[in-house]
Design a protein around this nucleic acid. Structure first.
Lengths: 150, 150
DNA sequence: TCCGAATCGTTTGCCGTCTAATGAATGGCG
DNA sequence: CGCCATTCATTAGACGGCAAACGATTCGGA
């Protein structure tokens, strides 16, 4: 009865590929939409804050910001009061993607879960939530990094 | 009722991180265990065959094979009869990891699904299977690459 | 006031993954 | 029999992700 692990991994890969195709149609790379989503909600956030919100490392956001800047989606500017901070600001192009991206995401979600009944969908979400919680606990245990901030 | 997509992605990341930590304890990088698993089952397979079995591109396997060779887990040798082919052979070190890796995987799976009842687990697998199938269908549609091999 | 600790972003380098381009060998068909 | 299409692996380059090292700035306490 083995291998929930493999099934979950394979499913994720397939879902990821579909989402990537969808975003690519809008000229985005997978992952960039998450950064945009945070900036649509509140423009001018610094990389560290975005990284924390996305549960991702700061260097990851920095790299993405570099590419997205090159792609004309946003601009970088240092905070005037605290020069350690950098703030990311949407360009017109970045702002314009909001509606199409949000629609595409809804579209993807609906199509992917089309074979599930409402009940199945709820159970799925419940199960995934439990597993995620469990995984985060296991991570915190084995990795005493953020344990005991004194 | 939002965002099965996000939940699934986040769960995957957490699960991946836990699995990665587990494999790292054995001196492996995540993903390498899958290559090893195929070679334990049948040694001397070529990269293309492994890629197909893992649903991964050939370059991915080639790169992993390069690192795993450097790590002393396997060796590369060209097939004598068909010189286009390369075959990957386990070293003693690669073979020795079988038991510990398989146990670690079982261990991980059990710990991750510990919060689920047997029934929940079955439903989860069923739902993920449906979604994966759906995702693969959507991919095949939008991407007429492998459709109609004449 | 001044120096060391804390806070940020960036750089570097690695892993897994993909697509596209390249290169080497085989095999079949005229 | 010889040439061209097919079949493989490899290389190159991009993306998302991570950890570690580095550099700049701010801030608090002596």
């Amino acid at each position: 009865m083995p291998e929930f692990l493999d099934l979950h991994g394979n499913t994720n890969k397939a879902v990821r590929a579909v989402a990537d195709a969808g975003m690519r149609r809008l000229g985005l790379h997978l992952g960039q939409n998450h950064v945009l989503a945070l900036l649509w909600e509140q423009d001018g956030r610094p990389p560290g804050e975005i990284a924390a919100a996305l549960h991702v490392s700061t260097p990851t956001v920095v790299k993405m910001a570099t590419r997205m800047t090159a792609a004309g989606l946003l601009t970088r500017r240092r905070d005037e009061r605290d020069n350690r901070l950098v703030r990311l600001w949407l360009t017109e192009a970045g702002r314009a993607l909001r509606q199409p991206v949000e629609q595409e995401r809804e579209n993807l979600e609906n199509r992917l879960t089309a074979d599930l009944t409402e009940r199945e969908r709820e159970q799925l979400i419940s199960a995934l939530t439990k597993i995620r919680r469990r995984a985060l606990e296991l991570l915190a245990d084995s990795d005493p990094a953020d344990a005991e901030p004194r």
